Simulated assay, not measured.
Amino acid sequence: MKYGLIAALVALPLRALTSTAFAAPTAYPLTIDNCGSNVVIEKAPQKAVGLGQNSTEILLMLGLADRMAGSAIWVSPVLPELAADNQQVHRIANSTPNFEAVVARDPDFIAAQFLTSVGPQGRVGTRQQFADLGVPSYVSPTDCAVTDNAVSDGSRKKMFSMDLLYQEIGELSRIFDVADRGEKLIANIKAREAAVRARVADKAKDVSLVYWFSSPEVAGDAWMAGKNGASGYITQVLGAKNIVSSEQEWPLVGWEAIAAENPTVIVIGTMDRRNQGADDPAVKKQFLTTDPVVSKLDAVEKGHIVEMDAQAMNPTVRTITGLETVAASLESFGLLK
């Protein structure tokens, strides 16, 4: 990959990157406006639980493994550079745990990737339930920007901005009184984004893409990325076009509609999860190359299929890697003009 050096620098553990970053210590109690609720943090958490892979990985990137009581809701393996620290953190569940399983870890803070985990109809529990036990909860600002997402993926009215991710990193680092680490992590992600923009921004004006996360059934309607999510951001940076125009985060789209648009490139999500029909990327590729209609698409016939970490298709710390992956692939396909 063209961006390996930059990625390698960012992959260094945060404790190795913080020697030159200084920030004022957090003054407690700290109050943060989070998803329309005031979250009050009386002191730096010592037994945090991450609900959602991205929330957990941010905490690990901030060097907080020793201040975590558990994690849950995983889609892919932990980032390799975080594997050792992740081994120190109790895995409550790979999927969605129940309220009792989380409370059994005696947490003093909950970091949730999605409102569906802790919202009014939270699949794990509600924010009020945790608050009643004296446990503050924090929801990723990337999900706060989505509407109608209490029980589903919802819709995003405005294009996702990395500023929402930077807000999340900054706020979590202040909550844990490690703001210097947050600033350094943000600076490194920004540097990676700037490097991609300088190299390939707006060079894919003739390219159309579709991002396939998964499907309930392999040959049935597929969950494709809507126009304003993390995949939309990637497409916007490249100056390309997402053939899906829906504001829904993950609309179900029929293959007839996709075939009618005949995208230049098909991006397929890779993951370890196996609870939906098309979670396995090998299954996706087999369908693309054997279905009598889909196999005739230009992207399939020309081999313009990109495998990308499914987590990068959601607004996460992996989205920057997704941008690098798609940019490098388009370059290798000779599609950047």
Results as ranks from 00 to 15, higher is better:
215 S>M: 06
215 S>R: 10
150 A>Y: 12
231 S>E: 12
306 V>A: 05
227 K>R: 14
157 K>E: 10
291 D>P: 04
236 Q>T: 14
212 W>L: 09
257 A>C: 06
14 L>N: 15
16 A>G: 08
70 G>N: 05
156 R>S: 08
253 V>Q: 09
246 S>C: 12
233 Y>T: 00
227 K>G: 02
242 N>S: 13
61 M>D: 15
227 K>I: 08
160 F>P: 04
170 G>L: 07
127 R>V: 13
71 S>M: 15
154 G>R: 10
66 D>E: 11
157 K>R: 11
31 T>P: 01
50 G>E: 06
50 G>H: 08
337 K>P: 08
159 M>R: 14
2 K>H: 09
106 D>T: 10
38 N>R: 15
53 Q>P: 09
16 A>S: 09
142 T>W: 09
227 K>C: 05
170 G>K: 09
8 A>T: 01
279 D>A: 11
82 L>N: 02
67 R>E: 02
121 Q>R: 15
163 D>G: 11
246 S>M: 04
285 K>G: 06
226 G>K: 14
318 R>H: 11
103 V>S: 07
326 V>L: 14
329 S>V: 02
90 H>Q: 03
1 M>G: 07
102 V>K: 12
205 K>P: 00
100 E>M: 06
212 W>S: 02
226 G>S: 13
80 P>W: 10
211 Y>H: 13
238 L>M: 02
191 A>W: 01
319 T>C: 03
155 S>W: 00
135 V>M: 09
69 A>Y: 07
275 N>E: 13
5 L>A: 10
160 F>L: 14
124 V>T: 15
288 L>Y: 08
75 V>Y: 08
88 Q>G: 03
93 A>S: 15
173 S>K: 09
213 F>K: 01
158 K>R: 12
25 P>L: 06
171 E>P: 04
83 A>W: 04
